Amino acid sequence: MVALVLLAGVGPFATDAYIAALPELRRSLDTNATVAQLSLTAFIVGVAAGQLLLGPVSDVRGRRGIVVAGTLSFTLLSVVCALAPTGGILVAARLGQGIAAGAGVALCRAMVTDAWQGTQAAARFGTIASVTFLGPVVAPAVGGVILEHGSWRTVFGALAGLGLTMVVAAVVGLPETLPAHRRQAGGPRDAVARMGELLRDRTFRSHLAVLCLAIAGFFTYIGGSSFVFQTAFRVDEFRYTLIFATNAAGMAGAGLLFRVLVGRLGAARLRAAGVAVSTVATLALLVVALVDRRAEAPLVVPWALLGVVVTGMGLTLPATTALAQEAGRRFAGTAAALQGGLGFLAGAVVTPLTGVLGYTTLLPMVAAMAVFFVAASGGLVLSARRGGGVSQALHRASG
């Protein structure tokens, strides 16, 4: 589990650890802000691509070899990033680093699915999710401490050290979880066919749809909240960091609560509770935004309601992951790839949405969030009425 947690947590950590150093990075490489920001974008694209490409490959080749190769690649590419002489080389290395990190994220889910079933697997997804949720909180703080004693290159040196730790953990702590007799036929055409089969499976498809809609609502908050709070509510950077960190801590706490409760209540019920909590809190926020157009209400009101939205995601994400992996158990690597890759892409697409719609008031961001969360709730209700997704997944998850 330590090795799996490292694999799952490295993506969020490596995304945010050097954000505060972007201006320094731009100056030291004598480049522009666009190239500096592209180093971040390239990593995010790489994480999505790594999941979509290497998850299906692991159904053919096995998990362990790809994990070890991925952790070694992450380590070496972190060194390349630390030594990069130009912005172009840094962006290319970050893309490769993201692909390696994405492989770890997808295969972490697949290996849990291989090794455990039902509520045992769901409980481990809850543990992994809790650590992953803390990444965006811990990474900037750790990066800030490193920057007090070094530069952006030092941050990537630290990521190389983390990569070495991952290599040791993978070699020592991770056995092969997919034996040869359970592997699939090779070739790109076969991989596409497996993806198609899962996407035609109504149960898996319903879980994937709910996941992508919930992630879209969550990433609308991620991409827009800093602009809204600092512009509409005139919050400084320190207070916004405090708001974001406390909300993320609530999500991590909900992930731990999921692990405790999943054995008694099941993943499907906890997923329904998480989506309902986020939806109701978002609709309450929408009422606040409509009534308080000038952002004159106490800051604690939107802060608390957004905290409830984010806490609900602490139940929704691990529960949906467990249910979708259970539904796609026959192709666990491909199922993990579709979840992670498409979910990540959904988040990336909506991240700039608030910038397009406007952020001088709370309303545009919250209205977009409400659309996505209400749609996710509608998807759960529809699948339940069809007698498919929720009830079948609950039966499977309960053993």
Score class of each variant (00 low, 15 high):
F372P: 07
Q339I: 15
V131K: 00
A33I: 05
A8Y: 11
F43E: 06
T203K: 11
L178G: 09
A139L: 02
A141W: 06
L77K: 08
L159T: 13
E326Y: 11
L199E: 09
A21P: 10
G161R: 15
V228F: 03
L83K: 08
G118S: 05
L178K: 14
V291Y: 01
V138S: 03
L299Q: 01
R182P: 10
A84Y: 06
A319D: 00
G144Y: 05
V68F: 04
L53S: 04
A101I: 04
I128T: 09
A393H: 01
A367C: 07
G388N: 15
V67D: 02
R239N: 13
V68C: 03
S398H: 14
C212M: 12
L256R: 01
L7P: 00
R194Y: 06
G11V: 03
F372W: 12
L53G: 02
V2T: 02
A267H: 06
G143W: 12
R183A: 09
R109N: 11
R259F: 08
V288K: 02
G104W: 01
G255W: 07
P302M: 01
S28E: 15
L83M: 14
Q97A: 14
L54E: 06
R293Q: 12
T15Q: 07
V45G: 08
A375I: 01
G150Q: 03
A254F: 12
P23M: 10
G312N: 08
L283H: 11
D236N: 14
T75N: 04
